[in-house]
Structures are given as C-alpha cells and as structure tokens.
C-alpha cells in the first residue's frame, strides 16, 4: 500500500494512504483522545474530542481527516485544547459521578479522555449539572441499559447496523433529548435484538453493561464450543470459575465478534449438573465411569449391530470435522444412512 509522510506534534510518521489522521496516530502509538471512534466502524465524527489543528490554521476532527503527504498536525494547539476541554467538561457535567461503584471504573473511555484533557474540580464546578433521568432498562437477561451514562457516541447504533445488520436500536428524538432506543422506546427485549452483546462489548462507558461482570484474574484462550464456526474466545477466569467471555480479536474466524450463546452462555461450565465423566448404566443405574471403560462398552455393543439396527445423532456443539467423521463412521462402518444432527431439529 502506498505510504504518505505526515508530522504529528513534531514527530514524522508514515501512514497508509487512505487512512485517517487518528488511525495513523494510534497505529504509531500516539494517543489522540477520542470517544466515538471504534476500529471496526466507519468514523462518525460526533464526539469532537479528537480535534486537531491542521497545517497551523484549520481545526478539524482527526477521525475523519484523511492523511496527506506533508500534512502537519498539532494536538496541543491552544485552540484545540480549549475546544477539547469544554467538550469533555460538558460530557462530565452531564454524567453521573458514581465512578467508584461503576462496573467500568478504571476501564472507562470517558475517564481516560477526562484525565488526559485534565479537567479539574475547580473548572467543573462552574457548570450547571444535569444528568439524564431515565429508568434503567433491565429487561434483557444479560445486560442493562443505563441512559444516564450514555454519551451518545453512537457506537452501539452503528454496531447494530454496520456489523450485525439487525438495527434493533437507533437514535430516538433529537437534541438534548436524544437517546438510543427501540420503536416507541419499548424495553429492548420487545425489539428484534438478538442479545449478541456486540454493542455491550463496544460501549465506551457503562451505558450498556453486562448484568454481572466480575473482573477476571486471568484469561484463557479457547474456542467456543457452541457450534462449528469455531470462534476464538478468551475465558475470564477467577479462582477456578469462568466468570466471563470475550471475543478474541486476533482470531481470524470471528475477529472478536461473538453471538449471544458464545458470549453469555458460559454458566454451564461451572454448573453442578454438568457431566464431567462418561456415565455407564449398571443394573439400570447410570454411574460414573472412566473413558476407557465407556469406550470399551460402546465398541463391544456396536460390533453386534449393523445397518438398520443402528442410528447416530450428532451434535452441533462438536466441530465440523468431528461431525464429518461421525457420518463417515455411520455410513462406512455401521453401513446405514440413519444419521442426523441436533441443529436440524
């Protein structure tokens, strides 16, 4: 790809032609504060926090500004600082001050932007505070929607549209009364929302937050067991329990995306009813057995039956390769076409 050279705050850097100034900066390890930007989405340019000065005369937002050869960008110009500071102060003056009890504390883009810009209690005190008072929508079993924390970056709306093509949510009303909502502002469960949680995963604040989100002590890389797609996941583990799942952005299959099952359906892992060993029926009662014992029993029984006496039911939760093997085994070894799959039900 063709490269162009530009200067940001005195640093010369190379960037792909067609990329934006913000992308170029972030790719080179330079932070320009931003709130409504997300690498998966078309830049919207709404939060105005990523303003920069271009070629010493023009104020522009950097997230939609294409890089140009020889461009000179300043992120610390006094005018840039003034606009950025007011913008962030306005956001904070309209945001609940409940950081310590907020699930996104220390992992919040608004906090990050606010601390970078350096807002002070003194300056903030001058503002009239007003926080949107709307009931929390807790209808969804997996996540809550708290409009009072929403900064209207639109990332959720764009995710639902651009990435998921579901469009369960959109902007509602206008001006200061704008919210993100469904038809008639009904609870999210009454919309076509599939609870995939892609919006929740991208929300920069806690306006969209999982109902339970304990912070994990470590993460384990794995593959989702729900279907044959094989999405890469990172299991959040705390003690011996799985407490959360997030998509693995490095996995080429799903590049971080997950569906409702993969993201929220992890409780079976630590469920007391979950089978952790094979069960073998002895005297009419199922009792735990070793794999060797179980497989021996299966092999012994299979060899006594062939053709129409046999049928196999495979599962969607094993890999495509395993499913292939089962049907091959059924047809070639067991000599029957009696093979089916639970996803067909």
């Amino acid at each position: 790809m063709k490269k162009v050279t530009l200067t940001i705050d005195g640093l010369q850097l190379r960037a792909d032609e067609g990329s934006t100034v913000l992308q170029a900066a972030l790719a080179n390890g330079l932070y320009i504060p931003n709130l409504c930007n997300h690498p998966d989405l078309v830049p919207a340019g709404l939060c105005r926090v990523c303003v920069v000065k271009v070629d010493d005369w023009k104020i522009s937002i950097s997230c939609k500004l294409p890089v140009k050869e020889g461009m000179v960008i300043s992120t610390e110009d006094p005018e840039v600082q003034r606009i950025r500071k007011s913008t962030v102060e306005l956001l904070v003056a309209n945001h609940p001050m409940t950081c310590l009890t907020c699930s996104r504390d220390a992992n919040c883009e608004l906090q990050r932007v606010a601390s970078y810009v350096g807002i002070t209690q003194e300056s903030l005190k001058r503002y009239r505070r007003s926080v949107r008072q709307l009931p929390i929508d807790s209808s969804n079993p997996f996540f809550d929607i708290d409009h009072s924390k929403c900064v209207l970056c639109g990332i959720c709306v764009r995710t639902c549209d651009e990435l998921q093509n579901i469009n369960a949510i959109d902007y509602v009303r206008r001006g200061v009364h704008t919210t993100v909502g469904t038809l008639g502002n009904k609870p999210i469960t009454q919309s076509c929302c599939e609870s995939c949680g892609e919006c929740v995963a991208r929300c920069p604040v806690a306006a969209l937050a999982p109902k339970e989100s304990p912070i994990s002590m470590r993460e384990v890389k794995s593959v989702c067991t729900y279907c044959g797609v094989g999405c890469g996941i990172l299991l959040g583990v705390r003690g011996e329990k799985v407490v959360g799942v997030r998509g693995d952005r490095d996995n080429p299959v799903n590049r971080g995306s997950l569906c409702v099952k993969g993201r929220y359906g992890f409780k079976f892992i630590n469920h007391p009813d979950r089978l952790t060993t094979p069960l073998v029926r002895k005297d009419g009662v199922l009792v735990p057995a070793s794999w060797d014992e179980a497989l021996e029993r299966v092999a012994a029984n299979f060899s006594e039956h062939k053709g129409e006496q046999f049928a196999a039911l495979a599962s969607a939760r094993i890999t495509n390769e395993d499913n292939y093997l089962i049907q091959k085994f059924t047809r070639a070894v067991m000599q029957t076409n009696n093979i089916d799959h639970c996803a067909r039900l």
Partner: peptide, 22 residues
C-alpha cells in the same frame, strides 16, 4: 437552538443546553 439542535455532536447538544441553563 437547544430545541432544534439535532443532538449528534457534543458541543452543540450539551453546549447549547449549558449556555441555556446559565
């Protein structure tokens, strides 16, 4: 202007409201 602001960008949405409140 506060009523007529479309609300998409922060300075106009919250800025006009703040100016109005003051």
């Amino acid at each position: 202007t506060e009523i007529e602001s479309c609300g998409q960008c922060v300075p106009c949405r919250l800025g006009t409201k703040q100016l109005l409140d003051i």
